[in-house]
């Protein structure tokens, strides 16, 4: 088989990889904000839940989490009399998002803590409610601070999507595995696969840089 014949199936897989990356990064970012803000909450329950989530998902392996969600969760459901069987795509997105969200939560927490005390004093003096302070003062200042780390996490997430091939999701790596089984042309197929991931990572990095520039525009105006 000529290498160009590998392209259609690999590109089909690439589209799945892109979708997985986008969904899990967006969902992961939401989890990161929830847990990062939760960890700084004055509410003990919220704080405990956030800390437990972050520690469990940072303290164990992504593949363990993926397998647990896919293989073990349905059995846990059975024991509780619930149907917790989830399709591979849901298990994949959930595992990726939960994992990246736990790492992102620490980034969010750090960025929020980097906002200066004087900002909170000004917000209080102007009689902002805690919620207004969070949305109008804290988050807009913390987000540009998080962006470089979020960029790294997004690339990490793209790479991690390759693991979902292990629960038979038809991503790029899964397609490559199928091709290799069929043709035994390992060198060509894996070289192409590596280059495609590399290309996607470069594009993703550029996009995250663009986003970083956008949310941090006020920092650079007129300097």
């Amino acid at each position: 088989m000529h290498w160009t014949e590998y392209l259609p199936p690999l590109l089909q897989g690439a589209w799945v990889t892109v979708q997985l990356t986008v969904y899990s990064t967006v969902l992961g970012a939401m989890l990161a904000f929830a847990a990062g803000i939760g960890k700084l909450s004055r509410n003990l329950m919220l704080r405990a839940v956030a800390v437990a989530y972050i520690e469990v998902f940072r303290g164990t392996s992504l593949l363990v989490q993926l397998f647990w969600l896919y293989f073990a969760l349905p059995m846990a459901g059975q024991a509780l009399g619930l149907d917790l069987r989830i399709p591979p795509v849901v298990a994949g997105v959930m595992a990726l998002a939960l994992n990246i969200g736990a790492y992102g939560a620490e980034v969010v927490r750090g960025a929020i803590q980097s906002v200066q005390q004087g900002q909170y004093e000004a917000a209080r003096a102007l009689n902002f409610t805690p919620r207004q302070t969070l949305t109008a003062v804290t988050i807009p200042q913390a987000v540009p601070e998080m962006m470089p780390s979020f960029g790294n996490l997004a690339v990490q997430n793209l790479k991690d999507t390759a693991l979902v091939s292990l629960i038979s999701l038809g991503d790029m790596t899964f397609r490559a595995e199928q091709l290799r089984n069929f043709t035994q042309d390992s060198t060509t197929i894996y070289s192409m696969l590596l280059l495609m991931y590399f290309g996607m990572a470069l594009v993703l990095t550029a996009m995250m840089r663009g986003l970083e520039h956008r949310v941090g525009r006020w920092r650079k105006v007129g300097v």
Partner: peptide, 23 residues
């Protein structure tokens, strides 16, 4: 405040209008 504590991510106008609008 001694160190101004302006909101760095808002324009001058926004710094002044934000609280009257929100609060």
């Amino acid at each position: 405040f001694q160190s101004f504590n302006l909101f760095p991510h808002m324009t001058v106008l926004r710094n002044i209008t934000e609280a009257p609008v929100k609060v």
